[in-house]
Structures are given as structure tokens and as C-alpha cells.
Design a protein around this nucleic acid. Structure first.
Lengths: 259, 259
DNA sequence: TTAATTGTTCGCGAGAAGCAAACGGCTGGT
DNA sequence: ACCAGCCGTTTGCTTCTCGCGAACAATTAA
């Protein structure tokens, strides 16, 4: 019933598939590449890379444009499908739009997968700042308000599994980087119902997030607003905005049950 | 230089990779599945499916939720990246939004890949009807106005390669389904600069599309508006709207060169 | 409790897949 | 124009992978 972050890759491993996965990752990293280039980067023979690329191309996962292989637009198709499979996606999207409009800031929606946070929607209000995150972007959970609000709803075992898998790497000097510190913070979040990010991922950026819960108590995502420290301070930061974000999360919870 | 639709999978084929591709496709088709289910569907042993799923999960291409495997949100990430790699994407997106606003109808943007058309953006105006297409959706080129306007800019060889690969299946009784008919139509499109779809893919649906060309003459996509026959008729259908669509295509061409 | 179904592990043999090397096409340099 | 070098593609060979069957757990149903 509960969503336990599955331990990665027990069972047997198919090497050939691993090579293709590496190729896809490299193609993305390198913004497209040729056979020799990939062979060099992955330390494999040209022949191997070539036959993998052929297979991936036949399945339309890569495409050859002007002699260089690139990841194909088929990922857009499957990605869009995967997004749609998240059952609160539509209502969350609507609420994110509304939240951005209401506050004039950046609003976002995140879900957890593989122990990481995945941004699924972002809307920009009138005064919205530029943020690096984009739809599909995967970030570690401990260093964002969205991530921490999701973590706050998981069991200690689940959290430990995530820490074991990804660690708690430091992003800025304010990033939480010890288990105790994190658990204390999560306790506070549970009490207040809202999570804050005070320049923990980027200097000058503050966020406020609230978890979105299933009727059965499990967490299915989080919603947030982000803005500059210059506008996110005082009562607005500690009272007004948190209330609005919490309200938005609540709206999603209510609307989701009606689907 | 020219973008010749590559003949699918010449070289050698990696069977193991093919199996994983089949699994991904099946998972999407079946909206998630278990090991036994997949083994049944793909006619493979449970052990094989299991080791593939392990590998795919370790690479975060699939995820196990409550005991069923599903395609993961990693596709959203890569898909978003792939979309961004299309160099006219941003300007086309803006223009699609503007076009929808101006006409009140559905506006869309498509590019070609693997001999198919891929919808990359859709915007809905005030009176927009519901259409089945969605971002990432892949459709054959011969049965939409968008697709035909792209085809109209390809060489006969390229078009023949696409026909050989995908055929010209009939969608409605008005769908173009012979090579000659298609080539005649494409000639007309080249003369007029705009393509029409008069219920060729769906009863009651009409579209107008225009190709978007690179300065070097190659086609890099198409833009369209769609609406019901009740509003798409007479002068509006034959004069006003085509002019607007062609103008939009032109705006994209001009803006794209500035990037 | 038993029975049935599903997920997971293991050993083994066939054949798949990765490598090296050679080939052909293209490009750029002189 | 020609050669040199690089890249993509193909082929044969050898090995080790990987797919299968079957046994073993784990989960659910009856």
C-alpha cells in the first residue's frame, strides 16, 4: 500500500540494455553525437555503438539528423503520457496556474519518483523571477521546499532509504546535510504544515511549499511558490504566503478526490 | 544537408535492446503491468522480463509502484529536453499561442521525425473545439494539413521513402490514399502556400496549415489552426484564415533566423 | 490451511553481442 | 586533383552474455 522507494537494481542486469541506456544518457549530455564520439566516451567499440544505435533508431528512440544521432521526439510522446498517468496532474496544474496568477510569483508542482523530486508543472506570475527548474527536472528532495514537504510525509524507513541512495549533498552553505538536522526540520514541517527553503539551493531564492496528501494519508506531491528574498520576507513570507500555499494544496486534495 | 528519412534499422540488431523497447511500449500500451503479464504479452520467459525490468528500473526508465511496473517520469525530462533541441520551438510556441488568441480556434505546431508528424505545441482559443491530438502525439503526414504542408516541401524521393515506410492508410472516406492524388495535392499546396484538411482525418473537422521553412529552403515544421466545418467555410476558410496562418508561419521564419 | 498466482533466483547451454579489423565514403588540406 | 585521415558501416570470430526452464519465495485467494 505505501510507496516504498524500491532499492535500485537487485536481480540480474542485462548488459546490452545498460549500454543502450548509457548511449541515451550520453546523447543527451553531449547534445547529440556520432558513432566514434560515443565509442570514445563510453569506452566501447564502434561496432557495438553502431548496432545499438541502429536498434534504438528502429524503435524511434534516437534519430539521425545530418549524420549526428540525437534523442528523438518519441520521448515527448511517452513523457506526456507518463505525466498524464499522475492522477492529480490535471487539477494540480490548474491550481499552479491559479497560484502564480494570485501571487505574481513562480508556482510549481512536484512529485516523488525514485527517491527524487520531479517538477511536473511550472507557472510564472506577473513578477516571477527566472528559476533554473523546468518540467521534468529531477532534483534531490532534501534541498528544496517542495522536496522537504514530500519527505515530511514519509516514514523514517523510507527517508533513510532515500538518504542511503542519494546522500545529502550540499548545494549552498545553508543546505541541510545531516540526518538529524533533516529529521528535525521535517518534524517542524509536519507541525506547521508548510516547508520553507531559505536559500538552501540558491543564493537569494526563497520558497514555500506544502504537501498534497491522498485521502489514505500517503503523499502524492507538493506545490510551491518561489521568489527573491527581497519580496519573500517578514509577514508575507511567514504568514500570508504560507497560508495561500497550504490552501492551494488543500484545493488540489479536495478536487482530486472527485476525479 | 537535406534531411532524408533514414531507412529504419539496417545494420545489426541488438535483440536484448529490442526486448527492452518492446517492454516499454507494452507498459505504455497496458498502462503499467506486472512481470507475468508482460511475459505473456511479449511471449518471453518471466526471468527475461524480470532482468530487463531490473535494468530499466536501475536506469530509472521504469518505476515500480505498488507492485506494477510503469514507464517513469524520466521520459518527461528527456522529452522536454528533446523538445527544446528543436531550434524553432520557442518562437513557434509563442506564435501558436498568439494565433489561437487571434482566431479563437485551436492552433498547433508540428515537426517531422522518422517520416511522421509530431505535434509539439497546441494552444486553444476562446471558441476552440476539442481535438484528439496532444503534445508528443505522432501522426502520419498524409492525412493532416500540417503533415501535407511539410510533405509539400520535401523531394519526391523523400516522399516516396516515407510512403514506402508508412503507407497511406485511410482515415475517413476523404483521406488521400494514392500516390498520384497525394503528389497532385502537394503541387497545389506549393502553389498556394497553404494546405487544407477537409475532414480527411475526422468528420466535421477542417484545418489550415502552412509550412515553416529554413532560410536554406529545407522545411523545419508547420503551423495550423483547426475548427469545425460550421465555422470553417466560405471566405473565412478560403481567404481570411489561410492568410493569417501563412503570416504566422512567416513570423516564425523571421524570428527563428534571429536566434 | 491450502491452493493458486506472482515475483525472484539459479544453473546451463545456445547463440547473441561485443570486438578487431577491414572497407568504403566523405572531407579537408596541400 | 589527389592524397591522407576520419568516420560510419560491415563482417567473422570468439566468448561470455542472456534467455530459458525450473525451482524457490512471497503474496493473495479461497
Amino acid at each position: 500500500m505505501s510507496k516504498i522507494p524500491t532499492e535500485a537494481g537487485s536481480g540480474r542486469h542485462v548488459q546490452a540494455v545498460q549500454i543502450s541506456c548509457d548511449i541515451l544518457e550520453a546523447l543527451r549530455e553531449m547534445d547529440g553525437a556520432g558513432v566514434s564520439e560515443l565509442a570514445e566516451a563510453l569506452d566501447r567499440s564502434k561496432a557495438t555503438i553502431h548496432s545499438h544505435l541502429s536498434t534504438l533508431a528502429a524503435n524511434e528512440f534516437v534519430v539521425k539528423n545530418d549524420g549526428v544521432y540525437e534523442v528523438s521526439l518519441r520521448f515527448v510522446d511517452i513523457g506526456e503520457y507518463a505525466k498524464g498517468q499522475v492522477d492529480i496532474y490535471e487539477v494540480a496544474k490548474e491550481e499552479v496556474e491559479r497560484l502564480a496568477e494570485e501571487t505574481g510569483e513562480v508556482a510549481q508542482f512536484m512529485v516523488e519518483e525514485h527517491g527524487r523530486g520531479v517538477y511536473l508543472h511550472k507557472a510564472r506570475g506577473e513578477n516571477a523571477i527566472q528559476t533554473a527548474s523546468y518540467t521534468g527536472n529531477r532534483k534531490l528532495l532534501h534541498c528544496t521546499a517542495l522536496g522537504k514537504s514530500i519527505l515530511s510525509q514519509l516514514s523514517a524507513d523510507e527517508i533513510d532509504a532515500i538518504i542511503a541512495r542519494h546522500g545529502l549533498p550540499q548545494r549552498t552553505n545553508k543546505t541541510i546535510s545531516s540526518r538529524e538536522e533533516l529529521f528535525d526540520e521535517l518534524e517542524t514541517i509536519r507541525e506547521e504544515g508548510v516547508a520553507f527553503d531559505d536559500e538552501e539551493i540558491l543564493q537569494g531564492l526563497r520558497c514555500i511549499a506544502a504537501p498534497i496528501k491522498h485521502p489514505n494519508g500517503s503523499v502524492c506531491g507538493a506545490i510551491s511558490i518561489s521568489g527573491p528574498t527581497s519580496r519573500f520576507k517578514g509577514d508575507r513570507f511567514h504568514e500570508e504566503l504560507p497560508e495561500i500555499v497550504e490552501g492551494a494544496a488543500n484545493v488540489i486534495e479536495v478536487n482530486a478526490t472527485q476525479v
